[in-house]
Design a protein around this nucleic acid. Structure first.
Length: 344
DNA sequence: AATGCGTGGTC
DNA sequence: TGACCAAGCAT
């Protein structure tokens, strides 16, 4: 257990976490003096989120009772950096075709890439296939419920492992994704963005004791981040945590709906946020785009495609060559002896 | 630890 | 209209 301050997840050092935070900001207490009787205050936030979730939750297929661990794993991998709206159709078709890890492992990986469609980051399809093979071979076809075993699966990182352990097996696990991180950062806003470790520690204090309830609370936090405490324009009005939210109160009682607290931190000093954010390289005209074009051509063909077909799909020879080399290296593409290309 | 990895929607 | 954003992971 760390002695980390329990108030703001942010490093206790920065931005003078002084008690100045004020009493109205809820679970904010000077570091050090913290003890156990303050824990329920954090848990109260979870119960508020739970109550809100009971009313506002979306009905998503992977949350239904009939969604087993495999379905949950599939959904979590598909949802990595990908909006729910785009995942829905692919998810259904995927599970219909491969209702178990064993079924997927029995097909060639290229079929997974094909079924992945335009979800993006097609390496995820490859890794999900590889994960299915590991599950089949090393876990008797059952998705493991152990955090470390999950973490060891290809394509499964800290978030996905915690999500599967929690949502599929009702284990009491802090589940930290971008939604929850944003939510906590605003909730305890002290001008800094805490480390993931500290955020998870904070979450752990917030989760109810009963594992199944904790699991539900984790989904509730994520849903809150996805629907209410959104990145661009958070709707503080309906937020069940509003009265406990440090950022919201620091904004001075923003009305509702359109209330728009900026992001987590206000630059302490002048810092005109100049050369700060590194600009993302343009997608148009990139090798990245070329990879997509080549893969799309492969997907749309039932069998191998000729080099000439790829030239049509991606006319720029330089980028096409880079894309092919990259896809080959990633195992997303196979070069056949006759000069054609195919999915692996 | 900073990068690279798809794709499409939104304001 | 381009920049940001969407349930991250691997290297």
């Amino acid at each position: 257990m760390g002695s980390a301050g329990r108030s703001a997840p942010g490093p206790a050092g920065r931005s003078a976490p002084g008690p100045a935070g004020g009493p109205a900001v809820g679970p904010s207490v000077p570091a050090d003096s913290v003890p156990a009787d303050s824990v329920p205050a954090d848990r109260a936030l979870a119960y508020r989120a739970l109550a809100w979730y009971a009313e506002a939750a979306r009905d998503l297929p992977w949350r239904r009772p009939d969604a087993g661990p495999w379905a949950v794993l599939v959904s979590e991998v598909m949802l990595q950096q990908t909006p729910v709206s785009r995942v829905l159709a692919v998810y259904s078709a995927w599970l219909r075709r491969w209702p178990s890890p064993r079924a997927l492992a029995a097909d060639p990986p290229g079929e997974a890439v094909r079924a992945w469609g335009r979800l993006g980051y097609p390496r995820r399809a490859l890794r999900l296939h590889a994960a299915a093979a590991v599950i089949d071979r090393e876990h008797a076809g059952h998705v493991p419920d152990d955090l470390d075993a999950l973490r060891a699966l290809p394509g499964v990182g800290a978030y996905t492992a915690a999500a599967v352990a929690s949502f599929a097996f009702r284990r009491r696990q802090p589940v930290l994704d971008t939604n929850v991180a944003r939510l906590l950062t605003r909730l305890f806003a002290d001008g800094t963005r805490a480390s993931d470790g500290l955020l998870r520690q904070t979450l752990d204090r917030m989760l109810p004791t009963e594992p199944a309830v904790a699991a539900e609370a984790s989904v509730a936090f994520m849903e809150l981040g996805a629907l209410v405490c959104t990145a661009r324009s958070p709707a503080c009005g309906p937020c069940p945590l509003r009265s406990q939210c440090r950022l919201h109160s620091s904004r001075g009682l923003v009305s509702e709906g359109s209330s728009r607290p900026p992001n987590g931190a206000s630059p302490p000093s002048g810092q005109p946020e100049l050369a700060g954010a590194p600009r993302r390289p343009p997608y148009r005209g990139s090798v990245r785009e070329a990879r997509g074009l080549v893969l799309a051509a492969l997907r749309s063909s039932p069998g191998p495609v000729a080099a000439g077909t790829l030239s049509l799909a991606c006319p720029d020879a330089t980028r096409r060559a880079s894309a092919l080399a990259g896809l080959l290296a990633d195992g997303l593409l196979q070069a056949l002896p006759d000069g054609t290309y195919a999915l692996p």
